[in-house]
């Protein structure tokens, strides 16, 4: 097996498994940049995966054909936004501990999704969806030598959407007034309030954006990777996205890079057995590498990661 073949095995798989992580991590960037910790990404992703599987099946029944999974992605964004409202109301309006509220959201999502699956399908998991998001060769670009086969053939459109969105989120957060306001609310809410920014409203918007993105991430996972929804579909991807966001230093492009890297580690742990030289490395090192790297990054050993200043604190008007 030559080097090119190895790359062709690893890189598309990495981009493929990174896509849901990128979406969800971008959502995390919005929420945490506005000063609201979102441990609930896992739960939001779980609701997204459930919605993705459910509405793809419904779309098939309603005769939507190949458009069904795309339809389900849109519904998942909406459901994710609505579901994240619970976290927003509890942690912004009722000043609940943001971590606790996020944990509760995860519990609720796990319970509610399986409850509904059992109610609707009378089984522990949804049926396998027929219309999945399939691999395609990107026209023209896949013909480019070297780069083409690595990055543009047998790839998923959702992966490109994820990468494009990362740049869009970067632009929104760093080049628009809205982004500046959102970040200022997370750094120094009182100063932002003095300048006439509605802190509560900005945080609500940020948390709902995170819900939409995480819902999309979950639905993409269900419709491209998993193919159905069960209790084991989302097990830790949301937390891995959280890790990617932190490893990427709360920056959209950093989060995307970290998610791609974690995707690489995941794909290596699966395909590693076929690659000479990697066979000797026990799988466990690849499995734990995203988490260990995140801890090291936080400890300042792999570049200092600083959270937004006001993260985790409910904003109370007039409090000094």
């Amino acid at each position: 097996m030559d080097f090119m073949q190895i790359l062709q095995l690893i890189i598309p798989a990495a981009i493929f498994s990174a896509a849901p992580l990128i979406f969800t991590a971008l959502g995390g960037v919005f929420s945490e940049r506005s000063g609201v910790v979102n441990i609930g990404l896992e739960g939001l992703m779980l609701m997204g995966a459930f919605t993705g599987a459910l509405f793809t099946i419904l779309g098939e029944q309603w005769g939507m054909g190949a458009a069904s999974p795309w339809f389900s992605l849109v519904v998942a964004i909406i459901i994710g936004m609505l579901f994240s409202l619970l976290h927003a109301v509890a942690s912004i309006s009722f000043r609940a501990d943001q971590v606790v509220s996020g944990v509760a959201l995860n519990f609720l999502a796990a319970g509610l999704a399986i409850f509904l699956v059992k109610k609707i399908f009378d089984a522990g998991q949804t049926p396998i969806i027929q219309e999945r998001i399939y691999k395609t060769d990107v026209p023209f670009l896949s013909d480019i030598p070297f780069i083409g086969p690595l990055f543009f053939s047998s790839a998923y459109y959702t992966s490109y959407i994820a990468i494009a969105l990362a740049f869009l989120v970067w632009w929104v957060l760093y080049k628009t007034p809205f982004g500046l306001r959102l970040r200022s609310v997370g750094e120094h809410p009182m100063a932002a309030d003095t300048m006439g920014i509605n802190v509560t409203k900005m945080r609500y918007v940020a948390v709902m954006l995170s819900g939409g993105f995480a819902g999309l991430g979950g639905a993409v996972y269900a419709t491209s990777i998993a193919g159905n929804f069960s209790h084991a579909t989302i097990s830790g991807q949301g937390f891995m996205a959280l890790a990617a966001m932190i490893f990427g230093k709360w920056h959209p492009l950093g989060a995307m890079g970290a998610a791609l890297f974690f995707g690489l580690a995941q794909s290596l742990s699966i395909t590693g057995q076929q690659i000479p030289g990697l066979k000797e490395i026990p799988e466990v090192y690849l499995l734990i590498s995203p988490y260990v790297l995140t801890i090291l990054a936080l400890a300042g050993l792999v570049g200092r990661a600083d959270a937004p200043k006001a993260i985790g604190q409910p904003y109370e008007k007039g409090k000094r």
Partner: peptide, 8 residues
């Protein structure tokens, strides 16, 4: 799972 919802 109803119980999980209640606990949440």
């Amino acid at each position: 799972q109803l119980v999980e919802i209640v606990i949440a």
